[in-house]
Design a binder for these strands. Structure first.
Ligand code: MN
Ligand code: MN
Ligand code: ZN
Ligand code: ZN
Lengths: 146, 146
DNA sequence: ATCCTATTCAGATTTAATCTTAATAGGATT
DNA sequence: AATCCTATTAAGATTAAATCTGAATAGGAT
């Protein structure tokens, strides 16, 4: 049997390490994010709490997302437009994105070697890596016609 | 003797390939960007044209930057706050950035291996790479105290 | 000269994200 | 239990980065 898929352990650990509390609102947000399978932005997440038991303010959502990022519950993602997108780091694990500048299509890719090189480079500078944002822009197969 | 440092050739080539004109404004913007040594954002670039011969509108600046990106005259960069930052790809060549989430310090790094792996990954998907944005977030040496 | 299309201008508009002020929660102290 | 104290949140106002709109301009083609 697997470990619980969406354990708040890492999140709680981060909060504790920062002297922050695992409040009702942070629980709620963690929980909502945990079962999201797709890319999402802060505002759409906020909207999800409307009509649910307790209302959660937009600001609380915006303030909680960086904490979830830092605890590796979510990662930066990619989406249409200028909004910041996120996604849960689920069973498919961490990955990065290619974005077609013509049609907006988003392709996910994984590259363990790049991840390691990143870590190595950070170490060279004495930099402690917490998360990253790696996006490749260009033209997808379908948009290269010819 | 070196080739002209800030030749508009690549930029002009891109414009031509897209059926766009090398207008006075695009010339001016190219020229201004060409001698910028530091990271900059769209609005600060726009401000630079105030008090110079001809006024250039904010919109023209915003519309020209993606063209400069695509022709590899500039690259995405990193800066404080939420603005998009850019910088000329000059003699130090292409590089990426680490950003300290505590003090905001920005460290530049280069990694030829990562660049190659990126290209390889793109090819796997039939994706034609034009530019990328690779930023590492974490804590710099000075901010890890202890 | 007239037409035609791409481009630019100036300023209005949009809206993602942050800020402000007051209310609330919940633990510590008496 | 009542009071105090600090962290946190709510609600809505505000900011400002980027885009949009509609009119003016440039410059090539006919
Ligand atoms: Mn993804
Ligand atoms: Mn740089
Ligand atoms: Zn495409
Ligand atoms: Zn730092």
């Amino acid at each position: 049997m697997e470990a619980a898929k969406h354990s708040p352990a890492q999140f709680q650990a981060l909060l504790e390490s920062k002297g922050l509390k695992y409040t009702y609102e942070r629980k709620m947000i963690f929980d909502e994010v945990s079962h999201l399978k797709e890319h999402f932005d802060a505002d759409s997440l906020y909207e999800r709490f409307k009509g649910k038991g307790r209302r959660i303010s937009r600001d609380t959502v915006y303030r909680t997302l960086p904490l979830l990022l830092e605890s590796h519950v979510i990662q930066k993602s990619a989406g249409a437009g200028k909004r910041e997108f996120f996604e849960r780091i689920g069973r498919k694990g961490h990955h990065d994105h290619m974005i077609c500048i013509k049609c907006g299509k988003i392709i996910e890719f994984q590259c363990e070697e790049i991840e390691k090189l990143q870590e190595k480079k950070a170490q060279e500078f004495g930099f402690k890596l917490t998360f990253h944002d790696h996006r490749l822009f260009g033209t997808c197969k379908d948009c290269q016609h010819g």
